[in-house]
Design a protein around this nucleic acid. Structure first.
Length: 116
DNA sequence: TTGCTGACGGAGG
DNA sequence: ACCTCCGCCAGCA
């Protein structure tokens, strides 16, 4: 017996698994994670998974940004400044909600975790 | 139950 | 380059 909730939970778990692998001081995007998980058009669900990830202390949700390197999820942290503060504590420069040097800091799971 | 929203992103005009 | 629409699908009124 199976239901849709099971696959949803699997998807969420996979998202967390990838996010946990983001190295400190690096960032990635919702779309990159969705693509890696085989659901390139489900980037919104990655964001939703992040929303549910707050109770998991080992999921660095602050390292997940939108494709422009903007801190679009900052309002979902306790304080709006928390996301930026966490990033800056890892050596990342954030200016006006945007990660500087985003392309160099971008960590693509499709590349780092690519299948052989 | 239907409809709208949303931590997104790509495609089309 | 800019704007709009569409897909994805879990919550909520």
């Amino acid at each position: 017996m199976k239901n849709t909730a099971d696959s949803t939970l699997d998807f969420f778990r996979d998202v967390y698994d990838v996010v946990r692998l983001i190295p400190e001081g690096r960032v990635t995007s919702y779309g990159a994670i969705a693509k890696y998980l085989g659901s390139a058009r489900s980037s919104r669900m990655v964001g939703w998974a992040m929303n549910a990830s707050h109770r998991l202390p080992d999921v660095p949700a602050h390292r997940v940004l939108n494709r422009n390197g903007l801190l679009t999820g900052k309002h979902h942290f306790g304080d709006p400044n928390e996301m930026q503060r966490l990033l800056e504590s890892e050596g990342i420069i954030v200016k006006e909600d945007q990660v500087q040097n985003f392309l160099s800091l971008f960590w693509d799971p499709n590349d780092a975790l690519k299948l052989p």
